[in-house]
Design a protein around this nucleic acid. Structure first.
Lengths: 151, 151
DNA sequence: GTAATTCCTAAACCTAACTTTAGCTCAAGA
DNA sequence: TCTTGAGCTAAAGTTAGGTTTAGGAATTAC
């Protein structure tokens, strides 16, 4: 195993815990760019372990792969990213995460109101954050009730 | 429009903001059970407006349709649910939501640690809640780094 | 030198949550 | 009545994020 030649995809998979197929898929999505050895096999830098770890963390935060690609674009591509580089783009994640938490807290407060009155009658209730899930899934307007609690 | 005959699927769609196709789909998933008029068309109770609203709220909270079906099973099926009935099952949502918020807060704290040291080196970092997304998406082990920050 | 791994690509398949399409029937209004 | 809008079913399509399969080629291990 010639160390100076970079990591094989299998080695990278073992280091990150990702499936080989997932790593190839991420490549098609522009998240990682290996070079090829003379035999046509993918070779990765050791820094790519960190890169894929970042991808996994960002996914946990609810970012889509295109969004993660955007964030990763903030890294320098002419050199191996430094700790400072990673710190910079991680702070972008932090903002994203704060938004998600706020949205959920708002949702919880609304539910509290509904439980409080026991009627679940809205429009005081949730669905008043069209930002979070509404855009990701489904397609219609999806507003709530619009109906007096007489039924 | 004979009021005593219940709501048509189009009327229900207008009242809830859902697409007609989505309402039919929810029926296949056991979330709602209309009866049929003599011509074979679906007819809904007015209480179904509330039922679908609940479905939409629960989705915002991150519940899957099978999970929502479980929660709805807590409603009486021999009579129209009362405010007290809705309150009871809404409290189940509250617990679910609290869990999700906690998971995100833990994740945020972990990220803080990573940003603090600037290395994103882990395993101090995230991915230490295998409960949230890990089970839902992907299939491999997906642990992080396992690598000293030397690269 | 050969057998066993590992890797390659392309294409098909998977789940969730729906939407779209095709072809046909029902219901409502002038 | 007859036309138009609403509903019906079944099947196929869609998106995200991958996995699986098939049929070869490259590497590694002995």
């Amino acid at each position: 195993m010639p160390a100076s030649e970079g990591l094989s995809i299998g080695a990278l998979a073992r280091r990150t815990g990702l499936a080989v197929s997932a790593i190839r898929y991420y490549e098609t999505q522009g998240l990682i760019s290996p070079w090829r050895n003379p035999g046509g096999q993918r070779r990765y830098q050791r820094a790519d372990i960190r890169r894929l770890s970042f991808v996994m963390i960002a996914q946990q935060f609810g970012l889509t792969l295109p969004e993660i690609r955007e964030v990763l674009a903030g890294l320098p591509d002419n050199r191996t990213p430094t700790p400072a580089d990673w710190k910079k783009i991680s702070q972008g994640l932090r903002a994203h995460l704060d938004q998600r938490i706020d949205a959920l807290l708002r949702l919880r407060d609304n539910l509290d109101g509904c439980i409080g009155c026991g009627c679940l009658s809205l429009p005081k209730c949730a669905l008043y954050n069209p930002d979070d899930r509404a855009k990701t899934y489904g397609s219609g307007p999806r507003y709530l009730m619009g109906d007096a609690p007489e039924d």
